[in-house]
């Protein structure tokens, strides 16, 4: 033991390569660092498991659960206004047709999550492009794009959906998702623009320009990765907002068709 130590400490003169004092350091990229931090954050891990649990339930449970979404159960005489939770119906049943609420929730999760995630994702993509271009170039480009954003933000979403439902017909969940994305991106665009306004003055952006990087590449390859965390946070919150929004318009009857299960279904099923 002692002898090996002595040779190790002999320094660069000893045989073999020069000692490597940095051998323990591993370079991690942005995502690896984020994942590490995420793993150590108990609340974050709890949230992640909850979310993955909901997704798993949405995928698997409709096949396993004893009640079928499209079958109306035989009514029990003593449950006209809906049963309270019981061993058969763990969330209880609705009034009238006495449908199992848990079945509605599990089936509805699929479309609701798809609308929420899809609208937030498309909103983030469009918003990043518009906000990035506006913030990077500034001047009249910024002015033009931001006035479009202002105009869209000033429209009340609910009435727009009513009008769209009137002209394009309601019921298609993809259409609802597109509408929410089309009205979700202005918020992201504003956020991204403000981030770009500070990041574009960073020296590394000028350094990138000085090695001949094109504007498009600077926007999407050099600045956007630095702005990604606030975009992720905003989009995550947008998912929840869109789900609630969809449930709201569907409850009013202008959203997804009644026959398609979403998280609006329990609220409008008798």
């Amino acid at each position: 033991m002692d002898t090996t130590r002595a040779t190790d400490l002999a320094g660069p003169e000893s045989a073999g390569p020069a000692p490597d004092y940095e051998v323990g350091l591993v370079s991690l990229n942005q995502w690896q660092i984020a994942w590490r931090r995420f793993r150590r954050h108990k609340l974050a891990m709890f949230g992640a498991f909850l979310f993955l649990g909901i997704v798993a339930a949405a995928i698997a449970l409709p096949f396993i659960w004893p009640f079928d979404f499209y079958t109306i159960p035989t009514p029990k005489p003593n449950c006209r206004i809906g049963c309270p939770p019981n061993p058969d119906n763990i969330f209880g049943t609705t009034g009238g047709l006495q449908r199992d609420v848990f079945t509605l929730v599990v089936n509805g999760a699929r479309v609701s999550l798809a609308i929420g995630l899809g609208a937030a994702l498309f909103g983030a993509i469009i918003g990043s492009i518009v906000g990035g271009v506006a913030g990077y170039f500034g001047g009249w480009v910024d002015n033009l794009l931001m006035r479009i954003v202002d105009a869209l933000l000033s429209l009340p979403l609910l009435f727009v959906i009513l009008v769209i439902a009137r002209f394009l017909g309601s019921g298609n969940w993809l259409l609802i998702m597109v509408v929410f994305a089309a009205f979700g991106w202005p918020g992201v665009a504003r956020l991204v623009r403000s981030l770009f306004l500070t990041l574009r003055n960073e020296v590394f952006v000028e350094a990138a320009r000085a090695v001949g990087v094109s504007s498009t590449r600077i926007i999407f390859r050099h600045i956007l990765p630095n702005a990604v965390s606030p975009i992720i946070v905003a989009s995550t919150l947008a998912v929840a907002g869109v789900i609630v929004g969809e449930a709201f318009v569907s409850f009013l009857g202008f959203g997804v068709d009644v026959t398609t299960p979403t998280w609006a279904t329990p609220s409008r099923t008798r």
Binding site: N29, E202, V203, F204, E206, A207, H222
Partner: peptide
Amino acid sequence: AMIFQEPMTSLNPV
């Protein structure tokens, strides 16, 4: 080619 004044901020952190 150009070398800038501030090496601390001239490289993209990501």
